[in-house]
Design a protein around this nucleic acid. Structure first.
Lengths: 124, 124
DNA sequence: AGCACGTTCACGTGGCGTGAGGGTCC
DNA sequence: AGGACCCTCACGCCACGTGAACGTGC
């Protein structure tokens, strides 16, 4: 997950080449807060692979979907939110199943302890 | 909820007046699928109060937020999705609590049936 | 010294709002 | 017949992408 996909690698001309965009466009995207490449000590932008991937996503949203840059920012943020909610929902489903089983197990333990030795418990 | 907020009421000039927009703009919005006013037999658009409210929302997203129309459509749709997920999450929380209590109650009933009359149940 | 970087400004294109023209329904 | 509706076309403005100019870092 957090491997070196985030390591700053490419300067702007390379990154632009990778995604087939104008370097100036990438600068505009940064200015509007759509990507946040790191900088060298000499103030040169360095794009990570994650940044490049994000650029491709932005490209898709603008050129194919037709969003303007405000829309791209908004949609990217809302997609994060959606992913978060879906994950949370899924985890809650698991948690729910787990808890129910846990309770069942706990009570069955009690039942075993307390059951009279003679008649076996009949279960359906 | 589904009272007469959905009843077709205002023709385009009135609706446009209500929200302070150009009638032609409303036609464009319909053409792009952002609002779907009903029509009279004579093909005249009739906007409901819900439609008018939606128009105000669209107005906010375009003029204040700065979205283009594609963005408005997308954002409106994603907001619906977000609301749906949040509601579902909330209902699941309730359901989880309810189920757990239910199971507890069910087992306690059993415990009463099965507990031996002599030694009292010791609990930690 | 040279090349790619940095920023700022200028231009072209396209989306969107607004208006006009012409036809149709009450 | 008049007025508001319908639709289509035309114009203006602004956002965005692209390029040029000029300065700076390696």
């Amino acid at each position: 997950m957090t491997d070196d996909n985030d390591r700053p690698r490419y300067m702007i001309s390379v990154a632009a080449e990778l995604v087939g965009m104008h370097p100036q466009t990438l600068r505009i995207y940064e200015q509007k807060g759509l990507v946040r490449p790191k900088r060298t000590a000499g103030n040169t932008r360095l794009y990570s692979d994650s940044d490049v991937e994000r650029l491709r996503l932005i490209q898709q949203l603008t050129s194919e979907v037709g969003l303007n840059l405000v829309g791209v920012a908004r949609v990217l943020h809302m997609e994060d939110e959606l992913r978060r909610l879906r994950r949370r929902l899924e985890r809650m489903e698991h948690e729910m199943r787990r808890s129910l089983e846990e309770v069942h197990r706990s009570y069955r333990r009690d039942l075993v302890l307390y059951q009279p030795p003679k008649p076996p418990i009949s279960r359906n």
